[in-house]
């Protein structure tokens, strides 16, 4: 089915939704989560990206999430609950050096379908701006699919330009949800 894209615009494989979360303690978690907008062309992505605040400029406690249309940025969503995430944890000073670059590269990986046949397993990505250290994660739908998860992890690590000495871990959401203490075990590493 040829996607009917407006003349001159480049259609994406998927329609994507950008979500914004602002930590207002007087409201429920869900009430703090807002859908910003959806897009399905390269041009509309750039129009959005140039219009919104850079992640490094967000106040502590805020998140951006980019998910395929129809998938909500939470573990409970049907497409997330059996999945997990490749997690990038950043040191505090990296907010001003690499955070925005890492996040943009993550967005380009998603909208460009950069993970080959396994791109279909990608659900979305989340960036958390936190005083104790920012985090970026790519969420996939099936934590048990070793081949798909490890392929996505390898390509993602390469796209971020991380050295081979840096190890990143994949955590199943089910483990993160029931973790005891602050450390969640990694199901895979690359």
């Amino acid at each position: 089915v040829l996607v009917a894209a407006p003349l001159g615009k480049h259609p994406l494989q998927h329609r994507w939704a950008l979500w914004f979360f602002k930590n207002d303690k007087s409201k429920t978690w869900q009430a703090n989560l807002r859908l910003v907008t959806k897009f399905s062309t390269v041009e509309d992505f750039w129009a959005l990206y140039s219009h919104i605040q850079l992640a490094s400029k967000l106040t502590s406690g805020c998140d951006y999430s980019l998910f395929k249309d129809g998938i909500e940025p939470m573990w409970e969503d049907n497409r997330n609950k059996c999945g997990g995430r490749w997690l990038i944890t950043l040191a505090k000073q990296q907010r001003h050096t690499e955070l925005d670059h890492f996040w943009l590269e993550t967005l380009l990986c998603l909208i460009g379908e950069s993970f080959g046949e396994y791109s279909s397993e990608v659900c979305g990505a989340v960036i958390n701006i936190r005083a104790k250290g920012d985090k970026i994660a790519v969420w996939t739908c099936e934590a048990e699919d070793r081949d798909g998860v490890t392929h996505i992890g390898r390509v993602y690590k390469e796209r971020l330009g991380l050295s081979s000495k840096v190890v990143i871990g994949y955590q199943a959401h089910a483990d993160t949800a029931t973790k005891s203490g602050s450390l969640t075990k990694n199901k895979f590493v690359v």
């Binding site: 480049h10 390269v42 380009l108 950069s114």
Partner: peptide
């Protein structure tokens, strides 16, 4: 089926084209 793929170079070029 077919998959619409864009590499980062192309995506970045689109950002700068009018």
């Amino acid at each position: 089926g077919t998959r619409i793929i864009y590499d980062r170079k192309f995506l970045l070029e689109c950002k700068n084209s009018p």
